[in-house]
Design a protein around this nucleic acid. Structure first.
Lengths: 241, 241
DNA sequence: TGAAGCGTACTGGTCATACCACTTGACCAG
DNA sequence: CTGGTCAAGTGGTATGACCAGTACGCTTCA
């Protein structure tokens, strides 16, 4: 029998997820007030501190505004939330949101080449060596998911090489959204396994310290995945994970 | 007389800021454990729930990992934190971090044109009209800070027009980091006041629905600010706000 | 001697209750 | 209409107790 790790999520975690989903789904309109902490505690059958911890965390994400003395109101996450919210939006209620996935793919295609160019300027031979090591791993990998994870490692190195904290944090946020959805996308991305050449070319451009070539190579690395994903999203929009 | 809103920060807010600063400054090494909640409460002279709320919020940002039964340990924010952390990193202890500011400027220059291109594809005439309205406001504005805020409004419209949630959230995070630092940068950015032409050209490209032109125009919008900022940062690196 | 098993002492997680601080809105006095 | 007062409701903090999970030393047994 296949045993899977027991999930023991804390009470406040569950409240957090539940409220985030409700807010994101628009079950509580923007500007509207959430039930009071006491009321939530009563309705959910838990203690007020547990509710508070969840609410504080939600406030941290920018989804709601808690005001001392006043009610806790829902904010428009399109205006107030940051990129950290992306994972919660991308996979909502166990499903992938097609529109948002498309947006992720777009952003990847737009930002990736810039990162590659910076990495070419600053990475040096050490970075090229590390990238080439990943490329050899890619060559010997069959499993689609493992392959994608290696590709992520590749980008991880690239982002490090770009030596830009903003791009680093951007990448972290995007990866946090992308990685959980990977298993669901395995079938779609299976075709790419073995297409190592673009990665090799990009590594070569890094080694040469040539930003322009690196930028172009990065585009060729990203394009196949982008088109696979966009095609799949158009077809199966709204399927389960 | 110039009245400014009274700031009354809650206890847990103060603890939050204090601990975030300590962690970001590296006063507690990565992998090391924070004092226990009980100990923190005792040392800080506050209650444990207050400490917990702060710690939970910090955990939400990815700066620390809290594990039931184990200690709360510091994570490497370069690996685990998302873009939402940027504001805390950019202005640390009342000072602007020059290296990070440079990174912000780079990212802006890299991502901005992509947003403009998408906006040109999807915005339509309605967007162009809104942009041109902001442009006329820009023409009649002398104050450097007000001018920069209008520029932010301009970009806000552009990001909306790009119709990409990921870019929207990215922009929110960047703006949250950028806006608080604006007053400090007013002097540096004073030269730009009146340079409205690039904004007008970009709006025209949007109206024409021409992504390539919009991309180029966006670069010309961003370049002056970028070079001003980079120059200023090189000179006064580490000055107070 | 080594390793499995057990206990204990820590850690964070939850609860109940009381009280403080702030906002809101209704009401009233000027 | 303005300003003040007040009560009710909200979030903020404190206390103390107990539950739940982890880390680690110690015992115990092969």
């Amino acid at each position: 029998m296949a045993l899977r790790p027991v999930t023991r999520r804390s009470v406040s975690d569950q409240v957090f997820d539940q409220l985030v989903d409700d807010v994101v789904d628009g079950e509580i309109a923007v500007g509207e007030a959430l039930p009071s902490e006491r009321r939530l505690a009563e309705v959910l059958g838990i203690s007020r501190p547990a509710v508070r911890e969840a609410l504080q965390r939600i406030g941290q994400t920018g989804l709601v505004e808690v005001r001392h003395g006043g009610a806790t109101t829902v904010r428009d996450f399109r205006k107030s939330a940051g990129l950290d919210l992306l994972p919660k939006l991308l996979v909502r209620g166990g499903r992938l949101d097609a529109a948002i996935a498309r947006s992720v793919v777009e952003a990847r295609a737009e930002v990736g080449p810039g990162i590659a160019a910076l990495a070419a300027e600053r990475g040096g031979p050490a970075l090229a060596v590390a990238l080439e090591a990943v490329v050899t791993d890619l060559e010997t990998t069959e499993d689609a998911i493992a392959w994608q994870r290696l590709a992520l490692d590749y980008w991880d190195l690239l982002v490090d090489g770009a030596d830009s904290l903003v791009f680093r944090l951007m990448y972290n946020s995007l990866r946090a959204a992308y990685e959980p959805a990977l298993p669901a996308l395995a079938a779609v991305l299976a075709d790419e396994v073995g297409q190592v050449e673009p990665y090799r070319l990009l590594a070569a451009a890094i080694r040469a310290g040539d930003p322009a070539t690196a930028r172009a190579a990065a585009t060729r690395v990203l394009t196949p995945t982008a088109s696979s994903l966009l095609g799949a999203l158009a077809a199966l929009s709204g399927d389960d994970l």
